[in-house]
């Protein structure tokens, strides 16, 4: 008998990318993807269209609205971003990125055609199919509109499956408004769009105030049937969704029909680094999309 232990080489195993969730070798694997378009939106935010290079991998990359991915620039950083585009397009995503730190400040320097790495999709999404036949209210504060663009695209592509659809969108100033080039398009698709800014400037013709004001208007005076058959999707800064969710609650929108997307620090997206924990729940696995009942049961969530 040979008393030398045999080396087990995990790296020699083949990739099984389809089963990313239980495949050892997929852990650090990133899809090579190309930045095909760079579209400036505001002073701080830019929209990047990114396409997976390999056609087969492109075909395999399927996500649900609300999910996020990890974007990697070799040597610079890797960070999570919500997928901000239609889930019916395979292998191509749009990310709307605000400049805030290491990676996001480096991004404006890269050119169209640059190759980046992406891992994912990760996390939970909005249950769009469950919402068929119902009313939908999408409430976004600031950058919160970014993850909502994917459910909005879904609603537009399947408009006949939804009853009344409202978007309530608020930012601090008019100059921070995102996707202004698409607002008309949403409206034409019979989506009611209410925009409100906290601080108006001279050019601003719309209302100013808190996001809860237009929301209250929408909710007031509806019948029981409306409240019971309405889904709400809420994204934005923590202070905002506390107020918004409280209001939705007051109008008896069922808690399990209210969805929020939480943001936490993330370094893996796979339930390993623990940086994203809320209480002891992994935002990257059980979230970022949670129903409100779950959020109420999480310690330190809001």
């Amino acid at each position: 008998m040979d008393p030398e232990l045999k080396f087990v080489d995990i790296a020699a195993q083949p990739y099984r990318q389809q089963q990313r969730r239980d495949d050892l070798k997929s852990f650090e694997y990133s899809y090579r993807a190309e930045i095909t378009s760079i579209y400036p939106l505001t002073e701080m935010e830019t929209l990047y269209r990114i396409q997976i290079v390999d056609p087969e991998e492109r075909n395999r990359f399927v996500f649900t609205p609300g999910q996020f991915l990890m974007l990697e620039l070799p040597g610079i950083d890797e960070a999570p971003f919500s997928i901000s585009s239609s889930a019916s397009v395979r292998g191509e995503v749009e990310l709307c990125i605000r400049r805030v730190g290491n990676l996001t400040n480096f991004l404006p320097r890269v050119k169209r055609g640059t190759h980046v790495g992406i891992r994912g999709p990760f996390g939970t999404g909005f249950p769009m199919k469950e919402m068929h036949g119902q009313n939908v209210i999408l409430v976004a504060g600031g950058l919160g509109l970014v993850p909502l663009r994917s459910p909005i695209a879904y609603v537009m592509e399947n408009r006949s499956h939804f009853n009344k659809v409202n978007i309530v969108y608020g930012t601090k100033t008019p100059s921070q408004l995102l996707f202004t080039h698409q607002h008309e398009m949403w409206r034409k698709d019979d989506i009611d769009l209410n925009i409100i800014v906290q601080k108006a400037d001279r050019s601003w013709k719309g209302p100013s105030g808190l996001i809860t004001e237009p929301l209250k208007e929408i909710l007031t005076g509806k019948d029981r049937d409306y409240y019971h058959n309405t889904y709400a999707i809420v994204c934005g800064p923590p202070v905002m969704f506390k107020f918004v969710c409280n209001m939705l609650n007051e109008f008896h929108i069922p808690m399990q029909k209210m969805f929020v997307s939480l943001e936490r620090r993330m370094h893996c997206g796979m339930g390993k680094c623990c940086r994203c924990n809320v209480g002891s729940t992994y935002t990257c696995l059980k979230g970022p999309v949670f129903d409100y009942w779950t959020v109420m049961n999480l310690k330190e969530a809001i």
């Binding site: 087990v8 995990i10 790296a11 990313r20 969730r21 239980d22 495949d23 050892l24 070798k25 852990f27 650090e28 893996c268 796979m270 339930g271 390993k272 696995l285």
Partner: peptide, 12 residues
């Protein structure tokens, strides 16, 4: 979910 190969390789 998402087993970690860096740990697994050493553990195995």
């Amino acid at each position: 979910v998402y087993p970690m190969p860096y740990y697994a390789a050493k553990r195995k």
